[in-house]
C-alpha cells in the first residue's frame, strides 16, 4: 500500500480535514442558468459566497480508486485550487488575505452531476472518496499569482478542460475576505476557490488527472460501486479518509 499521507513541501502545514468548497464562483455557471437565476426558487443571483462542506468521509488522496454510484453512473470531475490556511483567518481584509494562506494544493471535487442548486444536495456532493487531495501542499510563495493559474484536466489522458483561476468572480483574496466575514478558518483548513463551468464527466473504468505548474499532478481512477482497489470494502472508506487528512509535516 502506498503511503497514505500527502506530501508537504514545508512545515508546519497539517491538513485539519475541514474542506469548504465554493459553488458558482465561475460566472459561466450562472450564465448557463440564464433567466432561471431570477425565477423561483432562486429569485436572485447569489450575494454572499455559496459554500458547501466536503466532510471527512469524502477525503482521499491523489491516486485513489473511487467508487462511482451505480444509480448515477457518472461523476463530474471538478478541478479546483485549494487554499491551505496557514494562519487563523477571521475577518481578514482582501489586502491582507494572502498572508493567511499557508500553501496551495490541487483538489478534485467529484459530484454526481446536478443542475439544481436550491438545496445543498449532499447526497450528490458528499459521497465517500469524492474529494481527492494532492499530490502535495506547496508553500504559498511557490505560486507567484494564484489568480493566474491554469489547471489542465484530462480523462483517460485526453485533455478535456483548462480551468483558469482568473475567470472566477471572486479572486483568492476576495473570497477569503467574504468567507471569513462570517466564519473563521483555521490552520490546515482547506478552502476551494471554485469549480469551473463545463467540468468533464467520467464513468467507471476511466482515469482522470488534474495538473498545474508547481502544484503537480493529481490522479484518480473511477471504479464501479463495491469494487474499490485492493478489495477494500466500502465501509473502510472513512478510515482511508482520516489517514488522508493526516499530513506529514
Amino acid at each position: 500500500m502506498t503511503d497514505p499521507s500527502i506530501l508537504v513541501d514545508a512545515a508546519p502545514w497539517r491538513l485539519s480535514g475541514v474542506v469548504y468548497g465554493t459553488l458558482l464562483n465561475d460566472p459561466a455557471t450562472l450564465a448557463e442558468l440564464g433567466d432561471a437565476v431570477h425565477a423561483a426558487p432562486y429569485k436572485a443571483p447569489p450575494r454572499a459566497p455559496v459554500l458547501y462542506l466536503k466532510p471527512r468521509n469524502t477525503l482521499t488522496q491523489s491516486g485513489a480508486a473511487l467508487e462511482v454510484p451505480a444509480d448515477g453512473g457518472e461523476f463530474e470531475i471538478g478541478a479546483a485550487l485549494g487554499m491551505v490556511i496557514g494562519r487563523t483567518a477571521c475577518r481578514v481584509s482582501q489586502a491582507d488575505a494572502l498572508a493567511h494562506v499557508g500553501g496551495w494544493m490541487l483538489v478534485a471535487d467529484l459530484c454526481v452531476p446536478h443542475r439544481a442548486f436550491y438545496r445543498p444536495s449532499v447526497r450528490l456532493r458528499a459521497r465517500d472518496g469524492s474529494c481527492v487531495l494532492g499530490p502535495r501542499v506547496v508553500p504559498r510563495d511557490a505560486i507567484a499569482d494564484p489568480d493566474a493559474l491554469e489547471l489542465s484536466v484530462s480523462v483517460d489522458d485526453l485533455a478535456v478542460q483548462t480551468v483558469r483561476t482568473a475567470t472566477m468572480t471572486r479572486s483568492v483574496a476576495r473570497l477569503l475576505q467574504d468567507v471569513t466575514e462570517f466564519m473563521t478558518l483555521r490552520p490546515g483548513d482547506l478552502l476551494l476557490l471554485g469549480l469551473a463551468a463545463g467540468a468533464p464527466r467520467a464513468r467507471a473504468g476511466q482515469r482522470f488527472a488534474i495538473e498545474a505548474p508547481q502544484l503537480g499532478r493529481l490522479t484518480g481512477e473511477l471504479v464501479p460501486e463495491g469494487f474499490a482497489a485492493g478489495g477494500r470494502q466500502p465501509a473502510a472508506a472513512g478510515e482511508n479518509a482520516t489517514q488522508a487528512a493526516q499530513v506529514r509535516a
Partner: peptide
C-alpha cells in the same frame, strides 16, 4: 436575514462561529 436560495440553507445562515 442571510438566507439565500442557493444550496439553502446557506452557510452564512447556518455555519457561523
Amino acid at each position: 436575514d442571510y438566507l439565500e436560495n442557493w444550496y439553502r440553507p446557506n452557510l452564512r445562515v447556518k455555519n457561523r462561529d
